[in-house]
Design a binder for these strands. Sequence first.
DNA 1: GGGGTAAATACTTGCCT
DNA 2: AGGCAAGTATTTACCCC
Length: 322
Amino acid sequence: MTQTRYNPDADRITETDATQKSPGEGSCPECNGQVIQDERRGEATCEDCGLVLDEDAIDHGPEWRSFYDDERDEKSRVGAPTTELLHDNGLSTNIGWQDRDAHGVRLSSEKQAKMKRLRTWDERFRAKDAQERNLKQAFGEIHRMASALDLAEPVRETAGILYRRAVEEGLLPGRSIEGVATGALYAAARQHGVPRKMSEFVSVSRVSDKRVQRAYRYLSRELGLAIEPEDPMEYVPQFAASLEISEEAERVATELLDVAKSNNVHSGKVPAGLAAAAIYAAATLTNEKLTQDAVSSVADVSRVTIRDRYQELLDVYAGHEG
DNA sequence: GGGGTAAATACTTGCCT
DNA sequence: AGGCAAGTATTTACCCC
C-alpha cells in the first residue's frame, strides 16, 4: 500500500478561486434577515440571527448545470447515467470517400466538392460529439464519486470545471477518463477546504492510487491550480461531526492545533493524523468518552499515530500555556 | 480500554556523481 | 540527472496493565 505524505511546500501556489458564500434566496422567517448560502458547509443560514434554514443542500434534482454562460443556450446536459453514454455504440455511419455513387459511377466534380464539404462537417460534428461523450462520462463519474464521499455540490462543480479545462487544453490523451476525473475531484475538494484522504478517493474510483496521484499532480501542474497545503484544521469539522463530540471539544481541538502550528510541530506530519489526535486530546480534556479506536477508524489513522501525536500536542500545549 | 514496543514500509531529504 | 543512504512518520502486530 502506498501512502501520501504531507509536504508543506510541494504544491503551494498563491492564487485562489471558488467563492464560499453567496446570497441565497428569500428572507429569514425569524427576523426577516438576508439568507446566506454557505456553499462550503452546504448550509443556508440567516445573516442576522444565524438561524440555519437548510442543511446538507446536496444532490437535489438532476444535474442541469451549465459551467459557462454561452452553454446555457445549448442546453448541454451532463451527469447522465452511463447507459446513455455510448448512444451509437461505435456503429455510426461515415460518408464514403470513393466519390462514387451507389452504382460505382464517379460523381461529377461539382458533387465531389459537395461531398468533401459534407465529410468535413460530419467529422467536425463527430469530434464534438466524442468530446461531449467524454465529458458526459467524466461528469457521471465525478457525480458518483462525490456522492459516495459525501462531497457537496460546489465541489463537484469545481471538479467538472477542472475536468473540462483539462479536456480543452488537450491533457487527456494518454490518460484515463476515470483517473483524471478522480484527480479533478480530489483537487476540487482540496480547493474547497474539505479534503478527504487520497485513499478514500481511490477506494471509490476504478483506477489505482498511482494513476490518481499522477493525474492529480499533472492537473495541478498543467492547470496551475491554487491548492494550499493541507491544513489539519480542515479535518476537524468532519471528524467532530462523525464522532459527535461537543462544540466545546471541537473548539479545544482547534486550539490545540493552533498552538501546535505556532510551535511548528505540525510539519512533516500527516494532517489527518494531527487532526485526529487533536480531537482525541480535546475529548479527554473535556471529559468526553471517546476511544482511540473510534477516532482511528473515522480518521483512518492508526491508534499508534494518534497516541504519539496527542502526547505531543498536550506537551506543547502545556509548555506554551504554562 | 489505554499504553508500549519492534519490525516493516513509505516517503523525504541530502549527498554524491 | 539520477542513485544511494540516512532519517522520519506511519502502520502492523504483538505485548502488558
